[in-house]
Computed example of a mutant assay.
Amino acid sequence: MANNRGASTIVDVAALAGVSRQTVTRALNDMVDVSASTKARVLAAADELNYRPNRHAQSMVQGRTTTIGLVLDDLSNPYFAELASALSRVAAERQWSVLLCDIGTDREKGRAQLASIVSRVDALALTGCRSDTLELLPASVLRQSTMGLPLLMLDGPDHERLDARIVLDVASGMTAALDHLVATGRRRIAFVDSDAGSPERRDIYDSYLEERGLDWGGRPHISADETVDGGMSAAERLMREAPDCDAVLVYNDVMAIGVLKTMRRLGYPVPQQVAVIGMDGLEVGRLVTPELTTLAIDKGAIAQASVALLEQVLTAGRPAMREVVIGLTLLVRESS
């Protein structure tokens, strides 16, 4: 029976399984001097009590570094590179390390990569992941027992197995960007979406135009790859189907740079004829001409919140706050 003061302890597990604390430790660490029947009894007791070993304490006792596994779909996207850099810096302040796992688009290769790192990390932080990414994790990690690895989602789908989430307030940010476009006289505002993301951003955009009477006939629904080439092809289609469009809100900065390139090639001056706004707040947005207006995501704030949440999970078994919301900031530059 678990104690009445909070999370179950190793003493509770030992009492329920009828073994010593030392045996529980050896069983949970899969040591060879524990019989299969005893190990099964210990694991069953730990499952029943929702017990998770204090991995952070284990790291300190064993003299090894606490390691976060950062799982993402595409490290070539500068957003994830900037986020990984921020997380590494914040982790280093606690003398932790970060192990990157770029699973890519080949899901079976991604499954193998995830299986190869779960035994080498103390927690997993997932970002830029599709809705099925969690299902690529080994079954032992996805068990509902809190014995599994701590899992943190950074701006991604919710899942019952997650210990905590970082959520971006995309709705407020997009509203600020659209308000800015309207305030500068734009009325035929298009949106270029990702063809791999959730419908959230498209829904926010559609609702904004409908609620403010800004919907316009022939407005194309365009989505593309989250790349410069994707943005270029999306802009070509947009100006072919709606040449009187006077503003474009784009899913991310990388795609928005592709939109800028195509507008220049097609002879649509930015921002005089068409305003362009991206999302992410990447440094590369300051290197293009005109400089890109963007909805900036504070990667440092995400990193600070992520490490704080994981530290709570690793030390106490559960975070004081399961979900942290981070806003987006409109940075008005030359493109709008």
Rank of each mutant, 00 (worst) to 15 (best):
I10E: 00
L16T: 03
L16P: 01
T23N: 02
R26T: 04
N29Q: 15
D33M: 08
A45K: 06
D47Q: 15
D47N: 14
E48T: 10
N50Q: 15
Y51W: 08
N77P: 04
E82D: 03
L83N: 03
A84V: 01
L87S: 05
A91V: 08
W96C: 04
G104W: 10
G104Q: 01
Q113C: 07
A115G: 15
I117M: 09
S119N: 12
V121I: 15
A125F: 05
R130A: 13
D132R: 13
E135P: 02
E135K: 13
P150R: 13
P157M: 15
S172E: 10
M174C: 10
A176V: 05
A177D: 05
A183N: 12
R188G: 04
A190K: 02
A196K: 11
G197E: 00
I204V: 15
L214D: 01
S223Q: 13
A224P: 04
V228L: 14
D229L: 14
D229H: 13
G231P: 01
S233N: 06
A234I: 07
A234D: 03
E236H: 13
E236T: 12
M239S: 04
R240Q: 15
R240I: 08
A247V: 05
V250A: 05
D253N: 09
D253G: 09
V254S: 04
I257Q: 12
K261H: 14
Y268I: 07
M279I: 12
D280V: 08
E291C: 12
L295R: 03
I297W: 02
D298K: 10
R322G: 09
V332M: 00
R333N: 06
S335A: 10
S335G: 05
